[in-house]
Amino acid sequence: MFNISYFAPAKLSEALEYLYEHKEAKVLAGGTDLIAKWKKIGHPDMELLDIRNIENFAEISEGKDGLFIGAGAKMAAVQYNSAVNEKFPILAWAASVVGSVQVRNLATIGGNICNAAPSADTVTPLIVYGAEAVIVSKKGERRCLVKDFFTGPGKTVLQSGELLKGFVLPYPEKGSKAAFSKHGRRIGMDLATVGVAVNACVDGGKIKDVKVALGAVGPTPIYVTGLEKFAGAMANEAAAEEIAALAEKQAKPITDVRGTEEYRKDMVYENVRKCLKKAFA
């Protein structure tokens, strides 16, 4: 008990080699989830790979096919980055409501996703913006849509030896507008009771494309399916209500200290409707 072996390489190749050789190693980024949990479960032995020093891991850069956000980018960096604010405003918003100032100065966007809490604030915006996770290992690089990244509470598609390098967010189509809501009991230092992100592309008053993602109402973040049929429909209150009802149906919440199953379902409906109203405006 109590022993930690700690490795903080500057090169990605060294990190991947370490992960390959140390199958049980845990990846440490901000540590706000990992260290808190480690203390809670009695300080077990750990092998830690600290990724904060890896070259370019905290980078946020505008590329040809989209904005790249490194897995090691801190919440505060995402929150205040000008490109994120300009092109992906609800991601900046979601980052700004994670934990507290101190948490956002440590916690990373990669950690928020890899920790795979169903309530993770930045996940729903990444999903509705169509973000892809860039996953690297000794064998090479692969990509996975963030909506397909989660397999259960705390579980992801990452295999042994694989590391999340960052995300690519395709630039939003002209005419698209996103909205976000974190429904909780208080503003600071709380997890969402229900999280909602929507992204709608409206052309001439008609829906071209609409995406909805839900947080904290299932074992994983939920990408609402079956919305293709709304393409061509009028972007109005009636469509918002219909989509909200569909989202409510697909939500699979549990009852816990933050709210009951029924309450959460109601709040899914209300928040999706509210967000769509904003996105359609």
């Binding site: 540590g31 260290i35 203390k39 809670k40 505060a76 101190q102 948490v103």
Partner: peptide, 22 residues
């Protein structure tokens, strides 16, 4: 566990909860 902020220090000019930083 990073909730209360009593251990807040500045690390490279930014506040962090020093109980969560190894």
């Amino acid at each position: 566990e990073g909730e209360c902020g009593a251990c807040t220090v500045l690390m490279n000019g930014e506040t962090v909860t020093s109980c969560l930083v190894l």
